[in-house]
Write a protein that binds this DNA or RNA. Structure first.
Lengths: 185, 185
DNA sequence: GTAATAATGGACCATTCGGTCCTTTATGTG
DNA sequence: CACATAAAGGACCGAATGGTCCATTATTAC
């Protein structure tokens, strides 16, 4: 046996996520990642193939941890879950908005694996939203369409977080949207 | 008198806009701009202070040209204008979505002047939307709130354009949203 | 303690970056 | 034609980039 690692893979990812989240793949330098993770370049390149690989794994872990929260799978399904989903835009890992939504901007330049994760995640959320809407409103034809609107609205508020509005404003916005789709406006 | 310029300022901007739009400020190299505009570096740096300046001016021209379309000022004000606004997300300059929405992702890293233009534009659109909603629904207290939702939805669909959905899908989404806010759902 | 092992630290590399500057070339005036 | 003027072409710069590689150091098993 030799010397043992001073870091775990998850440690590195959790520290890399906020950096990629804030600055994106292209605008994040390896030096930035060294500083954020406290792991030297050689260490990073031992654990990950290259910068893109580190980005992809960060994105994967982001969804893994986030989905583990189960905001759209809590029983009973319904409006409460939909609202919980929207509130994911408050952020995590010390960042505002959504890592994936922020990455959409450079979608075309992202590695295929990253694109795959993102698209897959959207589809998964879409289906989960349909299930929750069905529980809340019954099996209606327009559940699919409405789920699409919810996703779009989520993208919007998540992106707007980059402009740095206070939480009260965004909460009111979510409330207004929930009222709208619940038909109590 | 000496040799005359082979390009106009507007020419350069119109050719730079799609590049910045697609790749953002950071991921666009001066070389990319040379190729896209057909103007050599020296020419670009004679006309513009630096890359950031060219970006800011591109953004400014984008809004100038776009707003000149008058999609939110056409008389009579009302729902039609709101829908016209949402359809701006179809794109222009050969690009999909919205240049400004795409730039929101790197908002924090943008030059102050660019941020100023973007924020100012959002406020302007917000007010124009309020005016149109007032014309469409009467002077209601929640016009302000609803205008906010429209802007957020616009951000969402514009961003989603980066995933490359077909126009039919996005049109249906806009229709569904319009139905929702017009209260005919 | 000693040898084996594996991660760390950091020198190093080619390339690309944004940006400057000088020479060349084209266009205008008389 | 000759001169003046201004833009175009492109060499050039230091800095930063992503990535490689090796010597050093720390930790294990014996």
């Amino acid at each position: 046996m030799g010397r043992r690692k001073l870091f775990t893979r998850e440690d590195v990812l959790d520290k890399a996520i906020p950096v990629f989240w804030k600055h994106g793949l292209a605008e994040t330098s390896v030096q930035d990642l060294e500083q954020a993770t406290g792991v030297r370049k050689s260490g990073l390149y031992t654990e990950f193939k290259d910068k893109e690989d580190l980005f992809v794994e960060s994105l994967r872990r982001y969804f893994d941890v986030l989905m583990a929260g189960g905001y759209l799978t809590k029983q009973p399904l319904g409006w409460t879950n939909v609202e919980s989903f929207l509130k994911v835009c408050y952020g995590s890992w010390g960042q505002k908005g959504c890592f994936s939504v922020n990455s959409m901007r450079e979608f075309a330049d992202l590695p295929p694996k990253a694109r795959q994760i993102m698209v897959g995640s959207v589809m998964k959320h879409h289906q989960l939203l349909i299930d929750n809407l069905a529980a809340a409103r019954g099996a209606r034809d327009d559940n699919d369409s409405l789920a699409g609107l919810v996703i779009t609205f989520f993208s919007g508020i998540s992106l707007e977080q980059n402009l740095g509005p206070d939480r009260a404003r965004i909460t009111k916005k979510i409330d207004a949207f929930m009222q709208l789709i619940r038909g109590k406006g």
